[in-house]
Amino acid sequence: MADDRRVWKCICQGDAHAFDAFYRDNAPRLQEFLRHIVGSRQVAEDLMQETFTQIWGRPNGFHAERGTLRAYLYGIGRKRAAEWWRTNGAIKQGNGVDPAGCSTETVSAVNEAFAQLPEGQRTLLWLREVEGQSYAELAEIFEIPIGTVRSRLFGAREALRTIWQGPRGGSKENS
């Protein structure tokens, strides 16, 4: 947290070296995350660049007491992806996520099922499972209470499980 404060202070002061280090540390992962959300490598790269350019051009809105710098970064990236999805998602939907960048063996059934999830669920699940964001960070990124994070994660997992394992059939439940 103290490190986040230091980095943020440098960014606010216009320290290009500090920002470049922050960019190099986080840009590849952010771009990968965005690619899984928007389904296009090129769009993901554009959104990633826009995210960093926004922070660098107008460094405001980060509060160390509310969350990590990484959560703040992903929060901006997520919003940009959601905006893009609102205007372009309808066109993309049906085509699924472009598996560009994945070799054949990596395109697993779960990946295909994941691509069928709604954008919001995909974002949440990826940030939790792959990026390892905590519930507190997710609450910060999505601007929702932690309890809502828990229920939405459950909803996303259920949806993915249904798509992924649908053909295998469900299991019996007791009460």
């Binding site: 590849p28 992962r29 771009q31 990968e32 070799s103 990596t106 779960v110 990826w126 792959v130």
Partner: peptide, 12 residues
């Protein structure tokens, strides 16, 4: 499985 898929993808 999601983490496995992510780890197999090359980070550009």
């Amino acid at each position: 499985e999601l983490r496995r898929v992510a780890s197999l993808e090359t980070v550009e």
